[in-house]
């Protein structure tokens, strides 16, 4: 089944690519579900200002993005992690030279109820809370109350980021509740006194309290400078550097423009550069 779907995706992508070779205004993208929303928002922007450029976006995970790029099935591979050396080697072996374009930073805010006394956690404490080793707020300097641990569902890119950067791929504890969206996580924390959750940085507003992690409050500056620990760059990989002025070039550099930065901020990510 999996291979059939992949074949179908590759087949469709191959057709679109061959058509693109004629018209030169087709961009095929594949890869991460985390980067997917940015790619889609950029594509919407393109649809408004450059309707002649047709953009096809698949979201099959970072690993599959590399495979597509390697096989020439896509122009841009969206990745929420850097390419592994084995992937790099097999790309080069197929005469594909991957070039990374950093398009945004993805930072996760750890949020608690505004009434919670705790204002700071270390990364280690956070991991212990989510693995279930720490189960009471008094162990981290708060009141004597059981911690209600709220996690995103395992489907989401947010979960994947958290699982990698905080949990180091260890499983989240059995007591954790799972919610289906960033907004739902925030609303649960807002209404539950002893809850803790993580959301994309854009979702941490004043209805909840954002914790500092290892002494650093997440904001555009601390994430962009790499000081905040729960953050990672998001990439788009192309085969070689795209032709200057071409559609792919404009697409991967859109994130540097004013409009691109606004789109990225709106989605809750951090733009690579500020004015």
């Amino acid at each position: 089944m999996k291979s059939k779907i992949n074949t179908a995706i590759i087949f469709i992508a191959a057709i679109s690519l061959s058509m693109g070779a004629v018209a030169q205004d087709k961009i095929a993208m594949d890869g991460s579900t985390t980067v997917g929303p940015i790619a889609k928002a950029f594509a919407e922007y393109y649809a408004e200002f450059k309707p002649e450029v047709k953009i096809a976006i698949s979201e099959s995970g970072s690993g599959n993005g590399v495979k597509s790029l390697m096989n020439g099935a896509c122009d841009i591979a969206n990745m929420s992690r850097f390419m592994k050396s084995a992937e790099f080697k097999s790309c080069v072996a197929k005469d594909v030279l991957p070039v990374a374009h950093t398009i945004a930073f993805d930072g996760l805010a750890v949020i608690v109820n505004p009434e919670n006394k705790v204002g700071a956690l270390t990364l280690k404490q956070l991991a212990d809370i989510y693995s279930g080793k720490i189960s009471n707020w008094k162990e981290v300097g708060g009141e004597d109350a059981k911690i209600v641990v709220i996690s995103r569902d395992t489907n989401s890119g947010t979960y994947e980021t958290f699982n990698e950067l905080v949990m180091h791929k260890n499983p989240v504890g059995k007591n954790a509740e799972y919610v289906g969206s960033n907004g739902q996580a925030r609303s649960r924390v807002n209404s539950t006194k002893n809850a803790i959750a993580y959301v994309g940085l854009g979702f941490a507003d004043n209805t909840v309290k954002t914790l500092s992690i290892d002494g650093i409050i997440p904001d555009a500056k601390s994430v962009g400078s790499g000081k905040y620990p729960i953050a990672r760059p998001l990439f788009m990989f192309t085969n070689g550097y795209p032709k200057m002025g071409g559609n792919v070039y404009e697409f991967v550099t859109l994130c540097l423009s004013k409009e691109g930065r606004a789109i990225i901020k709106e989605l809750g990510f951090i733009p690579v550069c500020e004015e």
Partner: peptide, 15 residues
């Protein structure tokens, strides 16, 4: 909750 990524991410057992 799990269907979204099941067929693509980590192999077919999950699917």
């Amino acid at each position: 909750g799990e269907m979204g990524e099941a067929d693509q991410s980590t192999g077919s057992d999950r699917y």
